[in-house]
Design a protein around this nucleic acid. Structure first.
Lengths: 126, 126
DNA sequence: CTGAAGTGTTCACAGATTGAACAGGTGAAA
DNA sequence: TTTCACCTGTTCAATCTGTGAACACTTCAG
């Protein structure tokens, strides 16, 4: 089942595209952290997106900083993101239902006291 | 962030313990499939649980089948499972909220038509 | 008695993932 | 100007991880 990994990869691509559409001047490291992967990893993903023609490297505006790029979505990238959005939605809604069902199922194994403790824990910070 | 992986590992342990408590005579392959990992992987997990004293290998009842084991939870295993249940619940409730929030956020990017299509897709089988 | 099928177990391998290190740009301070 | 700490994107060796084919063994139907 490489399916699981593929899902995570697709999530990453979607989130990257989404983040960049709203803020094309994010640094690779900021993206990496936001998405939850390493610097090497984000670089790999960005390169892939550029080679597929979904992103193009614009020049960074502020002070003409020659180190950085602005990663702007191409029309193709915008279309791909729209498609990924639909697929993401479908996947997440399914996950949502599954999660809901599993929570309900496991809840039966917990005492009232446990549940009260858990609610208290969640009220506080993690 | 190895945290993400650790979560998955803990989910696996919890689900294995949960499955075995209800049905100690499941085969490794059945467990593997139910939990979504490979045969090698499940064997590794079971060994770890046995070495930590949470499972003990009983003898399989039906026809005295010498190939198979029954994986029965020790008292320690039962306690560990109870603890994992609470932690699982906390984690999943947090995931549930996060997922809900993300879905709500992404929903704004989709048209009514898209949403209708998605609902139709979900009504059918994937 | 034979052979197919099911069991737990092993392990070499492929692929993914990391994060330290690098070359270079920037900007403030000396 | 020169220096230097800090920030870019980029690379890649090393590490981690999960996989699934293969193995020895047991069972049981034909």
């Amino acid at each position: 089942m490489t399916t699981q990994r593929d899902k995570l990869r697709e999530d990453v691509k979607f989130r990257v595209l989404r983040l960049l559409q709203d803020n094309p001047e994010m640094s690779q490291r900021a993206l990496a952290q936001a998405v939850g992967i390493s610097t090497g990893g984000i670089h790999y993903v960005l390169n892939a997106l550029v080679e597929k023609g979904m992103l193009k490297l614009g020049n960074f505006t502020a002070a003409e900083d020659k180190r950085r790029y602005a990663y702007v979505l191409t029309p193709k990238g915008i279309a791909a993101k729209a498609d990924l959005t639909r697929r993401f939605m479908i996947r997440k809604l399914a996950e949502y239902d599954a999660l809901k069902a599993e929570i309900e199922e496991v809840r039966a194994d917990l005492s009232e006291q446990d549940l009260a403790d858990i609610r208290a824990t969640l009220k506080a910070g993690n």
